Amino acid sequence: MSFQKNVKASPLRDNTRHITTHDPTTGKAIVHSSTSGNWSSFDDGKLGFNVIYTTSKFPPDINGDEDIKAHEKVMASDKLGLVNPGGTVCRTVDFAPGYECMMHRTQSLDYGIIIEGSVEMILDSGEVKLMHRGDVAIQRATMHAWRNPSETEWARVIFILQDCEKVEIGGKELGEDLGRGTSGLPPSGNDI
């Protein structure tokens, strides 16, 4: 899996993140910052990641903008895997036409919300579900892949990944499995 940092692969519109906070004098809501995406490209530009936000504990501490400081520290570390141990990750993922990502598993409870195009959720059992704009997948630490079935259009999914307790099935601990060809993607480290 080839990896390029700060490269947006898809032609889909960039998304802007607007973070709110409170005016320390009035207590009224204000915009802390508005920033465009910071994309990374994988698999020769067929897969794009944009981390929108992370938290590093649950529940997060938003007093004094502690959560924003924690997010900035995580992003500066360059060590964020798919999951942030003890916290959450909100990520936009773009899939090229016909692209299928590697079969993988994260130790997390994930919400995958289709916002552009259609995506197939492929499970290691062989089961496949075609999902359309507005559909939501609840991934519960299962082995899965994603495929964009369109031959011409890009697809976009927003994923919210939440760290979870270790998963044990039939006496076997599952843990994270990033699958084939994942160089450039650090392990999450939450299954140690």
Rank of each mutant, 00 (worst) to 15 (best):
M143S: 09
M143Y: 06
A137K: 00
R133Q: 15
A96K: 00
G117F: 01
S125D: 10
A141V: 01
E120M: 02
V119M: 12
E153M: 11
W146M: 05
T142I: 09
G112I: 03
Y99D: 00
H132M: 07
G126K: 07
R147H: 15
G112C: 06
S150L: 06
I114V: 15
R147P: 12
K129H: 15
A96E: 01
Y99R: 03
G126C: 07
I114H: 02
T142M: 11
M102L: 07
F95N: 04
T142E: 13
G98K: 09
E100S: 09
K129C: 15
P149R: 14
M143N: 13
K129W: 14
C90M: 12
M103C: 02
T106G: 05
A155E: 08
D110L: 04
H104Y: 02
C90V: 12
S125A: 08
S150M: 04
H144V: 06
T88E: 10
G87A: 06
Q107T: 08
R105P: 06
I122N: 05
D124S: 14
R105W: 07
G98T: 11
S125W: 09
S125I: 09
P97D: 15
D135R: 13
C101Y: 00
V119F: 11
T88W: 06
M121Y: 09
M143V: 07
P97C: 10
V136G: 15
A155M: 12
I113C: 05
R147C: 15
C101I: 11
T92S: 14
D124R: 00
